[in-house]
């Protein structure tokens, strides 16, 4: 049994890796090495890292187009992730998916999806298959609060409750669906209330303390695994960057951003680690190893080959 100090240090490293990885991605984007859309998770790391720490290898993960974190946590290498952003054949989707479509079958990462809410039924489908086979796997589905207003979300939620599917729905409420704040999207401030109408368990908490996130999600995962009962979790979080790289985020104030940064999950973890006796030296080592990993993945992505023209059609049909 790993002690809690080491567990937290591991989760801290994951969060730092996600942040440094995405900072490097933002830089590469500004250099024109990454194209299309690039949605950064910076600020939200506590959510995915905490939630996925509650899973087993056999469990399934489905997420949105803001998907880098989930892949990195599930075990997709930083090299395969960065190469995907660079559109290289060494990427986790062979350069065919890009930022929004990270897939990793071996790690049961069922992908990042670009149509808001359209992936929520997919996740329920993985849970359906798990129940059909009785293999004990749980599906976890991430989506933003912007998904809470679209039909696919409501239908998947209703069917998962009706059929008692082993799934945990995690609404990453980062306060804005693109530039629209929640109060202009929904008549209620509490997204988790959606669970009530379909007779589903729910939970709601802020993602500042990564261990708390893990423990709260673990309750839902246990409920899914042992009782085939789904849960809707509203995970309160905040993204520091714009919706995507093209968004300067002028719909919110610097004061608001500064306020939210006080709840930063990495800062919080650093404090908690120091309280557990982790030295500055040890933290510096973790950060240095992350920086080396990120530097290496950028170099790898840069030097990797482009996919061959034959890949345009190769994977359209089995």
């Amino acid at each position: 049994m790993q002690d809690e100090r080491d567990v937290l240090l591991g989760l801290y490293r994951q969060m730092v890796l996600i942040r440094r990885f995405e900072e490097a991605a933002a830089k590469a984007y500004s250099q024109g090495k990454i194209g299309g859309f690039l949605h950064l998770y910076i600020g939200q790391e506590g959510c995915a890292v905490g939630a996925l720490a509650a899973l087993e290898k056999r469990d399934y993960v489905v997420t949105t187009y803001r998907d880098h974190a989930q892949a990195l946590i599930r075990g997709t290498s930083a090299r395969a992730c960065m190469a995907e952003l660079f559109g290289k054949v060494t990427g986790c989707s062979k350069g065919l998916g890009g930022s929004m479509h990270f897939f990793d079958a071996d790690n049961h990462m069922l992908g990042g999806y670009g149509i808001v809410g359209g992936h929520v039924p997919i996740a329920a489908g993985a849970a359906f298959a798990s129940k059909y086979r009785g293999d004990g796997a749980v599906a976890v589905c991430f989506f933003g609060e912007g998904s809470a207003t679209i039909g696919a979300f409501s239908e998947a939620l209703g069917l998962a409750a009706l059929w008692k599917l082993p799934i945990v729905f995690i609404c990453e409420n980062n306060e804005y669906s693109m530039g629209t704040p929640l109060e202009r999207s929904l008549a209620v401030a509490d997204v988790s209330q959606k669970a009530v109408s379909v007779g589903m368990e729910r939970d709601r908490f802020r993602c500042t303390d990564v261990l708390e996130v893990r423990d709260r999600v673990a309750v839902a995962v246990k409920r899914a695994r042992e009782k085939n009962e789904p849960t809707l979790i509203e995970a309160l979080t905040y993204r520091y960057r714009g919706h995507s790289m093209s968004d300067p985020g002028k719909y919110r104030t610097q004061d608001e951003i500064d306020e939210r940064k006080k709840l930063d999950p990495i800062l919080h973890a650093e404090g908690a680690l120091r309280a557990k006796g982790v030295s500055d030296d040890e933290l510096a080592k973790v950060n240095a190893s992350v920086e080396a990993e990120v530097e290496d993945c950028v170099k790898f992505a840069d030097e990797s080959a482009e996919p061959d023209e034959s890949l345009i059609e190769a994977f359209n049909y089995a």
Binding site: L110, P121, I122, G125, F128, A152, E155, A156, G158
Partner: peptide, 12 residues
């Protein structure tokens, strides 16, 4: 909803 659930089930 059910078309998507079936697609997800087929994926795995």
């Amino acid at each position: 909803g059910f078309a998507g659930i079936a697609i997800g089930a087929a994926m795995v």
